[in-house]
Design a protein around this nucleic acid. Sequence first.
DNA 1: TTGTATGCGTTATCAT
DNA 2: ATGATAACGCATACAA
Lengths: 342, 342
Amino acid sequence: MSTPAPGRATIADVARHAGVSKATVSRYLNGRHQLLTPDIAERVRDAIESLSYRPSPMAQALKHGRSRLIGLAVADITNPFSVAVLQGAEKACQEAGYLLVLFNLGNKPGRERDALQALTDYQIDGLILNRVDTRVQLWQSAVGYGKPIVLVDRAQEGVDADFVSVDNAAVVCLALEHLRSRGWDEVLLVSEPCNGVSSRSARRDTFIAAMAQQAGKPQGMRGSFWESTTDNREQLMQRLLLLREQARDRRPAVLAGNAVATLRIASAVQALGWSLGREIGFIGIDETEWAGLIGPGLSTIAQPTDALGRTAARCLIERLQGWSGAARTIELPGTLQVRGSS
Amino acid sequence: MSTPAPGRATIADVARHAGVSKATVSRYLNGRHQLLTPDIAERVRDAIESLSYRPSPMAQALKHGRSRLIGLAVADITNPFSVAVLQGAEKACQEAGYLLVLFNLGNKPGRERDALQALTDYQIDGLILNRVDTRVQLWQSAVGYGKPIVLVDRAQEGVDADFVSVDNAAVVCLALEHLRSRGWDEVLLVSEPCNGVSSRSARRDTFIAAMAQQAGKPQGMRGSFWESTTDNREQLMQRLLLLREQARDRRPAVLAGNAVATLRIASAVQALGWSLGREIGFIGIDETEWAGLIGPGLSTIAQPTDALGRTAARCLIERLQGWSGAARTIELPGTLQVRGSS
DNA sequence: TTGTATGCGTTATCAT
DNA sequence: ATGATAACGCATACAA
């Protein structure tokens, strides 16, 4: 029970091998090459080389509290958006020499506390957090212990943390302008339940505001909002039928709030025997690899997922490296991808 | 630079608070409750409670070499299959009190060595590994240092490690039997390049063997094989045209080796203006959330992804808990999902 | 049954 | 410029 990593050289081995003290080796490793006699430096370098020594992050962590581990807590790993962000974050971490510890919250608010707890136990340096429900209080251990946190996609009021997200207002406007330009003027926004998820409510709110503004205009669009859940597929179909009836001389279209909603809508439309872009127009937030293959192709607004992940990681790493400015809000633009459905 | 986690209680704090020694607290924590005087035990419990003390996994790791961290190195996080497996693994780890450290190899064999290196540096207890290329030698540091490894989806000859995967032979047979039963008798297997990926070659080999066997029969099927890459989309279309011509009085179908191939095939078929299940039959390995929404619905064979991840994690955890039997090979069955395309 | 002392691999604070 | 030594938080061999 004594040799944690059998065969692994320690700093003491290197010191002995080079005929110097541990302190010297440590200094060499910490970039103070210049302050060492060239002769000694060389001997240390050789010893490190020939023993293929690598410092133990664990021991370092114990010593000065920095583990070079970054935590990523994601609301639901099932969601392609989460994975896309994860991808970008992992890349940035890797580049900066950090390891990524993953925690899936499975959409259960209760798990959030456990996750943060576990992460602080491990002396994780900082956190990229995709909150499950921004209404419940952010568990204070992490931020309380002074670990930096950056929020992704879902903002949290009253928390002093960086926030990176797509520009939801712009995304919704982009979608609506596109629909209008193509003559779709009766639009239904289908979203997953807002339930304190800030990105969803942001999209809903700007949608409603935009529609209110349209109400004044001569050829203005008309809009309505609908929350879709796992088990109200039937009602969604009803809602679509209704939308088409109410449209009268208007052209009905649906705007999906995210990829999950897109899936549900596509499924309902299929069940109705309709074709997207024909009986009903469509555009969805979130680009996917399969968007082009459904029906006539699904128009989408792509989130810059990779950039979101990278940016989040970079923000965090900046702070870990000592930068301490005020909390930033970074909003990246989405990109319109026009296909047959609109 | 002294307080790693300001405000966090240490075992010494608990000891002081309870008026006992650190050793006693440590014993209490390590399940030796019974050997303690009830009185003392209670005082320790109270102290832990009121200080909300939690042991530091880092310090423990440094002491006895076990970090309660499990590494997951995945060939390509972009692949939905990887993510699905990841999901299962994360769940199992979470349940067993392990944290998951993620490493994306991005399909670059070179990164594999870096990943294993990083993981051993961190004294990660064990590894779930989805190799990029099983032809190149498995970097020995991890296995050499006695860390257990379990291989997922991609086997490695000559390595003493557990291996968990879907039963590829059975999956291919299942697909072929289904196609035959529906009268599709000229089938093309479209796969990503095998390139030393054992699961792909396994599928190809059993396909070829099955076809060879069919060659003898009266109403036997006929088969061919094609490797699809990112940039031979044109050729794929040619190949499909050719397939249909050659079929003559036969009914042509294509079998996708995985979800990536499915995407490429669907795209090519769309570009040809064909409809799956009409001009050409289709079944694909890997179930996806969008399979039902493309054309008439894509028939698939679902891999038990969640079980694969969980099983892999469980195997690893078993070994971490001391079990040391011979290396196991666990093959789970796939499930046929029939839709319109076949 | 409990306490004391030592070491895990580092880094930092003293001396030298 | 370099070396001895004391922590970091925990677990254990040994002593009591």
